[in-house]
């Protein structure tokens, strides 16, 4: 197990290195140099003196490899630079917005679990029935429906026609727990829909696959009743591929948070990212990309570890 963890960690570090190069390159693909690109949008910066100051500050006057190592070491030290727009420290921005986005992630995961698991399990246990067909079709629709359209339809239905939820905005939990829940109900549901659909499909196919295996027959032959058989024998192996999907979805939920935070005006990391892209605010863009990639990688690493825990064949070798 230790060897396994170590190898996964090592692999993550290697990928992290590659990712940092990709991010560094992307940020420098901006037309001209990053400062010039930002100045084209933010006229406050469009002054040769200010621009040169900024270049010096971010080390953009140095050769690329030096820039890269400077950025890497600074980033590791927590010196993420200041936003070109607001002048605020990027790390501070990140820390302020993190809880908001985290709440969205957790909420979306919650929705996806309470929809995806029952859908998938019921569809598998009633396979080839009309119920299976409708649940499975609903799941494909859930996977296909774009976050932004679902969001708009929900806002129209449940904020405009039936004003149950606020159409947009965010109330922190500390201010009013109830209003906080109201304000995140729709965004998290919309964000979780795609994962719910994916989960339902994977739970169904994975459970079906496991139920067709010989050891399930053995369990039945011992006299285990259906429910006990499902819980004791089918659940764990069926969960293995599902864990992968959950991890993947968690990593990719970032895209959902970009869209949802934008359309519901929620002051989280996604909105920060969208704004930064449009302002060509490269310190923020870089930091956002690193966070996004780290999130994906941490999710993958967690999946590996959970996998090792669930499957002795991985754990022991």
């Amino acid at each position: 197990m230790k060897r396994y963890i170590a190898s996964r960690l090592l692999y993550s570090i290697l990928i992290l290195f590659f990712v940092s190069i990709l991010i560094f390159t992307l940020a420098r693909l901006m037309p001209g140099d990053p400062i010039q690109a930002a100045a084209m949008i933010n006229t406050d910066l469009a002054n040769p003196e200010i621009m040169n100051d900024l270049r010096a500050k971010f080390g953009l006057d140095k050769p690329y490899h030096e820039q890269y190592f400077l950025w890497l070491t600074d980033f590791a030290k927590g010196e993420w630079g200041d936003s070109l727009g607001s002048g605020e420290e990027v790390l501070a921005m990140f820390l302020r917005r993190l809880p908001v986005t985290l709440e969205l992630f957790i909420g979306a995961t919650f929705w996806s679990f309470i929809i995806g698991f029952p859908f998938g399990i019921i569809a598998a246990l009633r396979r080839n029935s009309w119920l299976d067909a409708s649940l499975t079709t609903t799941s494909i629709i859930g996977v296909s429906i774009p976050v932004f359209w679902e969001g708009i339809v929900f806002i129209y239905l449940f904020a405009v026609i039936l004003p149950i939820f606020p159409p947009s905005g965010y109330v922190p939990f500390s201010e009013s727990p109830w209003e906080n829940l109201l304000s995140v109900a729709m965004p998290t549901f919309v964000m979780g829909t795609q994962t719910a659909g994916l989960l339902a499909r994977y739970v169904r196919s994975s459970l079906l696959e496991v139920l067709g295996q010989d050891f399930i027959r053995t369990a039945r032959a011992k006299g285990l009743r259906e429910k006990a058989m499902l819980i004791r024998h089918a659940a764990r192996p069926a969960l293995l591929p599902v864990v992968t999907v959950i991890g993947l979805s968690w990593g990719y939920m970032v895209a959902g948070s970009f869209l949802v935070e934008y359309m519901f005006a929620i002051p989280g990391l996604g909105r920060m990212g969208v704004n930064a892209v449009f302002a060509r605010d490269f310190p923020v863009i870089q930091a956002t990309l690193v966070i996004v990639a780290l999130n994906v990688m941490l999710a993958n690493l967690t999946v590996d570890l959970v996998y090792g825990y669930l499957d002795p064949r991985v754990r022991i070798h």
């Binding site: 990928i15 590659f18 990709l22 970032v254 895209a255 956002t288």
Partner: peptide
Amino acid sequence: MRITDTFMCIPGLILLLVMAAALG
């Protein structure tokens, strides 16, 4: 394969936003 893994670390929409911002 490590390059594909690298690309897969950043969700498509976010890569697209940054690339589109760069390319115009």
